[in-house]
Design a protein around this nucleic acid. Sequence first.
DNA 1: TTCTTTTACGTTATAACATTACATATTGTG
DNA 2: CACAATATGTAATGTTATAACGTAAAAGAA
Lengths: 167, 167
Amino acid sequence: MSTSFPAFPPKDHDHCACLNTALGRAKARCNEQGIKWTALREQVFLEVATSHKPVSAYDLIDVLAKNGKRVAPVSIYRILDVLQSAGLVHRLESRNAFFACMADHGSAAHTITLVCEDCDRVIEAAAPDALHAIAAAAEAANFLMRHTVVEVSGLCADCAAREAPSC
Amino acid sequence: MSTSFPAFPPKDHDHCACLNTALGRAKARCNEQGIKWTALREQVFLEVATSHKPVSAYDLIDVLAKNGKRVAPVSIYRILDVLQSAGLVHRLESRNAFFACMADHGSAAHTITLVCEDCDRVIEAAAPDALHAIAAAAEAANFLMRHTVVEVSGLCADCAAREAPSC
DNA sequence: TTCTTTTACGTTATAACATTACATATTGTG
DNA sequence: CACAATATGTAATGTTATAACGTAAAAGAA
């Protein structure tokens, strides 16, 4: 199976290549949108993208600090705002954390977010039917939908297998 | 139109009756589940339910303080946990806030949450199709779904009408 | 080029949200 | 009543996010 919105990446996938692809896409996207790609933005984006797990703003501060770059919270939040508005990073509302968008979709993409409670990995899964049904329900309630958050927590296949090894 | 999951309540609805119904249901629910209905829990529940808007834990502390009852954050969070586990109060992840469940459904109810960006009112809308589609997408990704958050922000009918009066 | 404007980033302080660890009080049951 | 279980209090602290204002660096115009 090979779709544009894959399942959780295998643990041994080529992370370096994966990261480079994301980086290239990110630069291109910012270029299109007239958003400057600065050194600091790149560092932040790479830190977010390096982890397939959601990271908090303060996680990022810590990591950058270890790399010798001290950044204040407000700077991180500003940069995360920029990356979010470019659609390169999404916020995981249910965890007050951020993760890199690994797919090449617009901000209005019909995807939902799946988070593994065990290993914390995050993926986006295509779910146009779900988004349409949500739109229909909103419309039925006479509600003008602007932004939708769909976050599912549970177990990824790997962790589910590990938790129930007897079967 | 009259469903069990109504649209936003009219601004002039009988809030007092609405509150009493919710209160009765809350007590009954706790009784069923073997959860004690204490004076403090009642106060907290009523404060949450009195507002159709999401309230933060610290909002609740402030309101209770005005009513002469000083409560520490930890107590509020504990009580909110209890009310949430009883399905009487839900957390609005996208706002770090809480709102009372006005419908008589279990915690696994097939509802989504609609929040008006303008007036901040919250309702839950039935959306079984949406939830089923989400389940299908999760399954397709080989993901064992445990908990789902669906929060839609936008404009309720009243506010949409107010924002676009020319039409 | 210099001047000007805009955008990015830094500094400091503080607000807002949430939990840990431990103590006390209240309630229900034998 | 004594006891156990549950609920709440107290104090401290951890975590997440923003406001207000200053400086620097980049982009565009004269």
